[in-house]
Design a protein around this nucleic acid. Structure first.
Length: 270
DNA sequence: GTCCATGTTCTTTA
DNA sequence: CTAAAGAACATGGA
């Protein structure tokens, strides 16, 4: 159930082995999970070399030679495994790619199927419809995005505004910046906006350094769990004392999602 | 049986 | 047009 740091962690694993590899077999499980123009995903992918692995927001793409891409979004429960072709195939595996001359298979597994894969035979659609990636955000751009009369949590979660942030990292960044999630973007001061962006950058970088957050069962493409969950300050800490001020962390609803707030550090907007 | 889940999209209501 | 709330999607864990 990956946000930007988890997807970035997977991308870094894939980059160690995939660039230069040539796709051999393509096996599609559920047809409705893998979207592709005619004739078939296999026909478009077989025999093509992986040029690079790229990420934008929560999506990742294998860029193919000479052009074209395979874009993956993991939704809530999606997972990518890269390992020996002989390894047992887990349930809910919807796509398998093997590679020429290598005992290697890439599998996309997703029990809830909120994610999906799409094949673009002659273009790179990884950023289609998404805002700028959260990792490369520049201050003036961020300022413009946030200058709306909308709850800041909803704004940060909107992938068309900023790509990559999800429920965990939004809650963590708002806590770190001392901003209540229901505050309207237009009510943030200049210094608050600057501080929020700084905290977002810091937290994303730290989460990537710790290979993401494993809450329940997230694993990277080699099966390793993340370590950043041990550093969460509000997410999943309802009822526990705030490490900064000692107040009890509460859970509210914002943008339709469970939202974790410290009433001491994040003053309610009203 | 209940509630909840690292996501997205659509519908309704204001 | 904008924003918010709720439901929907499908599966599994506590």
């Amino acid at each position: 159930m990956p946000e930007l740091p988890e997807v970035e962690t997977i991308v870094r694993v894939l980059r160690r082995r995939l660039p230069g590899a040539v796709i051999a077999d393509v096996r599609v499980g559920r047809r409705d999970y893998v979207r592709s123009p005619r004739p078939s995903a296999g026909a478009h992918l077989r025999g093509r070399r992986v040029r690079a692995v790229r990420r934008h927001g929560k999506r990742l793409a294998l860029l193919l030679e000479p052009r074209g891409s395979l874009v993956v979004h993991l939704g809530m429960s999606g997972r990518i495994d890269l390992g020996p072709a002989s390894a047992p195939v887990p349930r809910h595996t919807h796509l398998r790619l093997s590679f020429r001359g290598d005992d290697l298979e890439l599998r996309v597994t997703d029990p809830r199927r909120f994610g999906g894969v799409s094949v673009a035979p002659d273009r790179d659609g990884v950023a289609d419809g998404l805002g700028p990636d959260a990792l490369g955000l520049r201050r003036p751009v961020f300022r413009r995005i946030v200058a709306r009369p909308r709850q800041i949590k909803a704004l940060l979660l909107d992938q068309r505004a900023i790509a990559g942030l999800g429920n965990i990292y939004v809650d963590e960044a708002l806590w770190a910046a001392g901003i209540h999630p229901l505050t309207r973007g237009t009510d943030l001061g200049d210094d608050e906006v600057r501080h929020l962006l700084a905290q977002l950058r810091r937290i994303l970088a730290a989460a990537i350094r710790h290979r993401g957050s494993t809450i329940r069962d997230w694993r990277d493409a080699r099966g390793a769990s993340g370590g950043f969950q041990a550093r969460h300050r509000v997410y999943g800490r309802t009822g526990l004392p705030c490490v900064r001020c000692g107040a009890t962390i509460v859970r509210i609803l914002a943008a339709g999602r469970s939202t974790h707030v410290c009433p001491g550090c994040q003053p309610s907007p009203g």
